[in-house]
Design a protein around this nucleic acid. Sequence first.
RNA 1: GCCCGGGUGGCGGAAUUGGUAGACGCAAGGGACUUAAAAUCCCUCGGGAAUUUCUCCCGUGCCGGUUCGAGUCCGGCCCCGGGCACCA
Length: 835
Amino acid sequence: MIGNNFFNVKWKIKGVLMKTYNPQEVEIKWQKHWDENNSFEPSEDKTLPKKYILSMFPYPSGRIHMGHVRNYTIGDSIARYYRKIGFNVLHPIGWDSFGMPAENAAIKNKIHPKKWTYENIDYMRKELKRLGLSFSKTREFATSDPEYTRWEQEFIIKMYENGLLERRTQKVNWCETCHTVLANEQVIDGCCWRCDNEIEIKELPGWYIKITKYAEELLNDMEKIKDGWPERVLTMQKNWIGKSIGLKFKFNLSDESKSKLKNRFDGYEVFTTRPDTVYGVTYSALAPEHPIVDFMLENNLFNLETEEKVRRIRSILPKDRQAMEKEGVYLGIDVVHPLTGEKVPVWLANFVLVEYGSGAVMAVPAHDERDFEFATKYNLPIKWVIEPENGEINKTEAYTAEGILINSGEFTGIKNTKAKDAIIKKFEELGIGSKEINYRLRDWGISRQRYWGAPLPFVKCPKCGIVPEKIENLPVTLPDDVEITGGANPLETHPTWKYTKCPKCGGDAIRETDTMDTFVQSSWYQFRYVSDFRKYKDVPFRAEDEKYWMPVDQYIGGIEHAILHLLYARFFTKALRDLGYASVDEPFSKLLTQGMVLKDGSKMSKSKGNVVDPDEIIAKYGADTARLFMLFAAPPEQELEWSDSGVEGAYRFLNRIYQNASKCKKTNKIPQIDANKLTKEEKEARRKVYETLKRSKDTYEKTFSFNTLIASSMESFNALNKIKNEDVYTEGYFILMNVLEPIIPHITSEISKEYFDLANFKEIQIDENALKKDEINYPVSVNGKKRAEISVSTEAKKDEVMAKAKEAVAKYIEDKEIIKEIFVPKRIVNIVIKG
RNA sequence: GCCCGGGUGGCGGAAUUGGUAGACGCAAGGGACUUAAAAUCCCUCGGGAAUUUCUCCCGUGCCGGUUCGAGUCCGGCCCCGGGCACCA
């Protein structure tokens, strides 16, 4: 441990009285002060300018980790900055408290999920408080609180009534270890996002939120937030939504094929983004799970050999097919080309996805890489219908670039980019196809077959079908008396919970036992914070509060939520708007995605044994040290490599500013300084201080490059410690304590209270005179190479500077012909000579 | 394969957006203080040459270009990280 042996002992170094910095004492004192004074509650005065600063809320896993420290330190610094310069600031915290880990803990430790969760919250709340975070106390909640669930259930019912939610049976992603269904967004490389177990496809009934209805708006509204969000997050969302425009048309089966299929099918639809290549179709391909294939198998319409191949391909999981070679088999049926009338063979192909488009494609081997590969393998014909404007086609691969149509009937000779629309139009005129927009985005499956979640507020009545619970009966709460086994849903097996009466007919009915995906809770929590909801219990949040506070001005969180949470929250905001609860289109105007905290080059994790516990760091050095290190070690968007000695460096800096503070005189206003009476060094120190002040505005409001702001502060302190002028020194502290308060609030409060009575904790005007330089240093280069440095008066004109510059580099330009003289005011002098 | 980031000392990272590369911090070395150590303070710190203290050469992944001047702009390439990935 460093320097803690002499707490509160005063002694003299170089004649100045100093005392040792004791972070534990100072920090707890200020934390108590803030707590007792409710220092961080937002004002109800809606005439004040506002800032809503939000860091993503944590899952109450038990203890905070360094990622939390980083996230909350960034958010807290921004919040404290705005509060200090006079904004009404909403800076809330809550707990994303439903979810699997509580159930896992229940199984492992025989503790009820609710007890485990709320105990964790109590512990973590203390940890966050010890970090000196300026959260509002009145706005705190946990998403598992019944009051929160109540409103969520109301939203869900309203969504159901407005066609935004439906129950249906479809193929779903099933994780056996988590014993639940997962949304598409929660499946990563075919594995569960939480436990990494390989997912299975099952056919199950479940609840779906129709996020696809908002695909277009989610895409278009990116325009509204593009200045505040990182480009890559928007790109990721754009790719995820995956809009593509093309032609949808129907392939009619040939007459023989129709009768072969017992007239159950007359054809099937296909979608293409390349209608310009439609004349090049030489075969069509169906997904292994296509209904026609199902039918043919059920009715033994394949010969033995084909059936065997079909069954083999179908037996392979779609995700495993990705890695495999293209494979297929001719199904023995044909369709008719809609424009040429030619017969087109129908194949089954392992690369066709049943869930995209219609699960069937037209194949144009000449102009599609996949189709080419497949056609080459099975010796299918290749028909070239586009050729480059200049040069020859290389017929050993698909030609996918732009060009002119050939062999394309009436469209021959047209540029392919134009042919796209022309051919769509032709299909529409003939009534055999139409323009179609396809999205990759699927509806959001929110059913989870788990206990620790918000119950879906619906009842299954044998007479009335699905019936929403009555609003006055909300919330539908979880029973406490359950046994968590990790197997079947405890709500399903509970002896009495699910048996209820139908809200409509009053007859015996059964409750829905699925609970909601936890991402539903985190999709609207930003709205809940806007009101002092303990006072206003008849609404989820007050409209006037929502209008005032929303949208969130600055949102801070990890990049890992780029798609999942951030897309859902954007959707939910739009849905709440359309249901009449919200007034905004987008929830977060600005987003800062903070980088991970690494140790020894990889993410801190228990399994790697490289975890640094924030509590230990705080116990050893204090919260300000932890905060300072977090913001100094790297820019917020980058990864941050943990460094024990870097932390010690931060601690040393705090000690220095604490001890040197005694060189200040006590005052409650900024010292008036006559710049004319100062030495060069004193002016220099003042300039650095004011440059830091100037920089701080940009840092807290725009760039968030706290690392360089801190560096600039350190530089200022170094300069101040070289001078002896008490006024300049005091002014420097007055300002620097102000600049650093958002980052290291405890020590700056302590010093500012003692010396300035906190008079420095408000916006300080920049003294432009202090920023002015009397002299400027010019590097003088000859042919671009720096040869000398000169110092001239700020007022010096070009001629004067050039004359001095030539003198300084005389030995380089003697006897040489000067071709050019470059003079960039306040920057550089360059003399170009011959030879 | 496609789309984004990014490659700067021993390390984390700066560089006013085309104008003194390496701010600030860490680590390292030397010195002061001390019986000693810790802490603290001072000095050095990209590489090389010279060392008579006035210096010179090289250097921001690699090759080339534009420019009086390039870490920054342009063309080509090589690595690293992330995202998407048979999406028709």
